[in-house]
């Protein structure tokens, strides 16, 4: 097996950063905030590299859509073991209007152009929590999909993927080409160490725009308002069950 794998790596606000809503409620503050790679995409890249190490994959291409700084995210992916990067340049000002719909069109086009056998993306990005891109890529390409993967194995000419579902685990066999989205337990990504970072500087990154791929970025949705989640109010302590029932009755909930 010598699969060509296309992997997404989205640049998002770092998971440790406290996100703040802009005063005009048009979105969240991103300027001057630490960004890093979406953790689910990191898992996707790790899996692709492991597939390369097992000789299942021959080439790993990573894609990131966004402003110039996305190239740093791509460099991290290259240091983890990906072979080359594609940066789809979308200015920071336009980025908040870009939806999974558009990203999925871009990925579908790149998957075809690069003759990818497998597309791997995170099950969701931790900024928008949309959980749509992978499914939409599969729909655009009319390829089978395995979402929320926790295990990927070779199975004849295809792949066997274990999925995390509400009731437990589901195992499905996939024909290639296919789209896979990663869940948290698929693997534990490696750190990019200095020797890998140094050699990754020489790996190629191709820069393109959505227009180059014939993808129109006109928004399909309109964001009306972005609000902070309600601040959690302080609770009350009760001594025993009877006091609890009393309080609940007082509040009129039982």
């Amino acid at each position: 097996m010598a699969l060509r794998i296309l992997v997404g790596c989205k640049r998002v606000i770092d998971y440790a950063v406290k996100v703040r809503v802009k005063p005009d409620k048009s979105g969240v503050v991103t300027e001057g905030v630490k960004h890093s790679m979406n953790p689910f995409d990191e898992i996707g890249i790790e899996e692709a590299v492991r597939m390369k190490e097992k000789k299942l994959a021959s080439e790993i291409i990573v894609v990131s859509c966004g402003p110039q700084q996305c190239q740093e995210t791509i460099r991290t992916a290259l240091a983890m073991g990906a072979d080359k990067g594609i940066h789809i340049d979308i200015p920071a000002a336009d980025l908040s209007k870009v939806e999974p719909y558009h990203i999925s069109k871009i990925f579908a086009k790149l998957a075809t152009e690069n003759k990818a056998d497998v597309v791997i993306v995170g099950k969701q990005a931790i900024d928008g929590d949309n959980n749509q891109t992978g499914q939409m890529i599969a729909a655009n390409l009319d390829w089978p999909q395995a979402t929320f993967a926790s295990k990927i194995e070779k199975d004849g000419d295809g792949l066997k993927v274990t999925r995390e579902i509400d009731g437990g685990l589901e195992t499905i066999n996939l024909k290639l080409p296919t789209v896979i989205t990663t869940d948290l337990r698929l693997n534990e990504p490696r750190y990019a160490t200095l020797p890998n970072i140094m050699k990754a500087k020489k790996k190629p990154i191709e820069k393109k725009t959505a227009a180059d791929l014939g993808v129109d970025l006109t928004p399909k949705q309109q964001v009306i308002s972005v609000e902070d989640p309600p601040v959690r109010e302080a609770g009350q302590k009760v001594e025993d069950v009877s006091q609890l029932i009393e309080k609940l009755k007082g509040a009129g909930v039982v």
Partner: peptide, 9 residues
């Protein structure tokens, strides 16, 4: 050496 060169065997 493999750790130093992710993806190479």
């Amino acid at each position: 050496v493999r750790k130093e060169n992710n993806g190479l065997m």
